[in-house]
Amino acid sequence: MVREVFDSVAAKYDIMNDASSMGVHRLWKDEFVSSLQPGRRGPQKCIDVAGGTGDIALRILDLAREKYACRDTTVDVVDINTQMLSEGFKRFKKTMYHNTPQVSFTEGNAQELSKEQFPDNTYDLYTIAFGIRNCTSIPAVLQEAYRVLKPGGTFACLEFSRVDNPLLSTLYDQYSFTVIPLLGTILAGDRNSYQYLVESIRKFPPQAEFARMIRNAGFKTGKDVDGAAWTNMWGGIACVHTGVKV
């Protein structure tokens, strides 16, 4: 189901994201990556799971290079969907990172990453942006993240979450269930896939529950409040969860 949805939206994924979020997803991704400060204390080995279009990987490499003059930080982009990966690969061809050891694209399932390609204790930073809610088993994804991270490595997840403010929540619900599927029909000719995307957001566990799942996988987090175990963006429409393998 998920594979079919993303197969059908791959080519217009970014256009649709821009249209449905009015460009805000770019700000969230910028803030997500800048909060992680990749490359600040030297080169980092990163893995971006469900990162097919290369949005996060490109931001990580650009930030490390532009802000910290780090050209040795690397990102392995992993996605279950080959269509999305080829979109990302195409995008990277336009950048200086194409054909360098700084980036690689691999097809893989977040729930069971290949142990040969992704050995234990390998990465300093694991990112997953707007991807984990589409996985069948979130605990399995978290276990794999824990496995591939080095001790001291960080798990960081950007995902849609729960809006606390009742007024904002009502407006957001109206927008999600009416405008987004309509935009899907107009721009991508695919209402069902975008209907699925909106519904999957509502099924994703709220902030505190997801933080508990992260801890259950073995990670250490801050306290269960906004600004510690998680950081809400735009009142909780999107949210960054982090955990550390200590």
């Binding site: 909060s35 990749p38 204390r41 001291g152 490595g153």
Partner: peptide, 25 residues
């Protein structure tokens, strides 16, 4: 983390992302 008792001791200091995750931005 370099001063944790072995076998928990790390070989490298915590990254900035890890510090932010545990202690705040």
């Amino acid at each position: 983390v370099l001063h944790l008792p072995s076998p928990e001791s790390h070989s490298a200091p915590l990254s900035d992302a890890a510090i932010t995750a545990l202690f705040g931005q």
